[in-house]
Amino acid sequence: MRDETLEPLPKNWEMAYTDTGMIYFIDHNTKTTTWLDPRLCKK
């Protein structure tokens, strides 16, 4: 489920979907991926 109230992704981040429809996030700065939304992981 998407939460439209979240702010935009940080610079150089992208949201993508797996072949089965699961959301993951791509950090183009470090060339890594994560299941965790970077907008929710702020310190």
Rank of each mutant, 00 (worst) to 15 (best):
Y17G: 07
P10G: 04
N12K: 08
N12D: 11
Y24R: 02
Y17V: 14
C41Q: 15
T30I: 04
L36H: 13
L40Y: 07
N12H: 08
T32R: 07
P10T: 03
M22P: 02
F25A: 01
D3P: 11
T34E: 02
D37F: 00
L9T: 03
L40T: 11
Y24P: 02
R39D: 05
P8Q: 09
E14T: 08
D3R: 09
E14W: 01
M1T: 12
C41V: 15
N29H: 06
K42F: 06
W13C: 02
F25G: 03
T33H: 03
W35I: 06
L40N: 15
T30W: 02
T33M: 05
T5E: 12
T5G: 12
M1G: 12
N29E: 13
D3A: 10
L36D: 08
Y17K: 13
K42C: 09
K43P: 15
L36K: 14
K31F: 08
T5H: 12
L36R: 14
T33K: 04
L40A: 13
P38C: 00
D3C: 08
P38R: 00
K11V: 10
E7M: 09
T20Y: 06
K31L: 08
P38Q: 00
A16L: 06
D19C: 09
K11D: 10
R39N: 03
M22G: 14
N29Q: 10
M22H: 09
M1A: 10
E7N: 07
M15C: 10
I26D: 02
T34D: 01
D37V: 00
I26V: 11
M22E: 15
C41G: 14
T20L: 08
R2E: 12
W35T: 10
M15W: 06
E4C: 12
T18L: 03
Y17I: 06
M1E: 14
M22V: 13
I23F: 08
T5S: 13
D3L: 08
Y24I: 01
G21Q: 07
E7F: 05
R39T: 07
K31Q: 14
W13A: 02
Y24L: 02
E14G: 07
K11A: 13
F25R: 01
T5M: 15
L6W: 10
T5W: 06
M15V: 10
P38A: 00
L9C: 01
E7W: 06
W13L: 02
Y24F: 09
L6V: 13
D27N: 07
D27C: 04
P10Q: 03
A16D: 06
T32I: 10
D19Y: 08
D3Q: 11
L40M: 11
G21L: 02
L9F: 05
P8W: 05
L9R: 02
R2K: 12
D19V: 09
T20E: 14
W35E: 05
T30Q: 09
T33R: 05
N12F: 07
T34M: 02
K11G: 10
F25D: 03
N29T: 12
N12T: 04
M22D: 15
E7R: 11
P8Y: 04
H28E: 03
H28G: 06
L9M: 10
T18E: 04
P38S: 00
E14K: 06
N29G: 11
E14Q: 11
H28D: 03
L6S: 15
R2Q: 11
T32S: 11
I26K: 07
T20C: 11
D19S: 13
P10F: 01
P10W: 01
E4W: 03
K11C: 09
D3K: 12
W35F: 15
D19G: 10
K42S: 12
T32V: 11
L40P: 09
P38H: 01
T34P: 00
L6E: 13
A16Y: 02
W35L: 09
E7D: 10
K11T: 11
N29C: 09
T32G: 05
P10V: 01
D27H: 04
T33E: 04
M1I: 08
K42M: 10
K42N: 08
C41T: 14
T33W: 04
C41K: 14
T5N: 15
W35G: 05
Y24C: 02
N29A: 11
T5R: 12
P8V: 08
D27W: 00
W13N: 01
D19N: 10
K42G: 14
W35V: 06
K42I: 10
G21T: 01
I23E: 15
P38G: 00
K43T: 13
Y17F: 12
D37I: 00
P8D: 11
T34V: 00
Y17P: 04
T33F: 02
D19A: 12
P10L: 02
D37E: 03
R39F: 02
D37A: 04
L36A: 12
I23L: 14
N12P: 04
E4F: 10
W13S: 01
T34W: 01
R39G: 05
F25N: 00
Y17W: 13
T20V: 08
E14C: 05
T18R: 01
T33I: 03
T33D: 02
D37Y: 01
E4H: 08
L6P: 11
M15F: 08
K11Q: 13
I23S: 11
A16N: 05
R2A: 11
T34L: 00
W13D: 01
T5F: 04
R39P: 03
P10R: 01
M15L: 12
D37K: 04
R2T: 14
Y24V: 03
E4A: 10
T30V: 04
W13Y: 05
P38D: 00
K31N: 08
L9P: 03
K42W: 09
P38F: 00
F25Q: 02
W13F: 07
M15S: 12
W13M: 04
T34C: 02
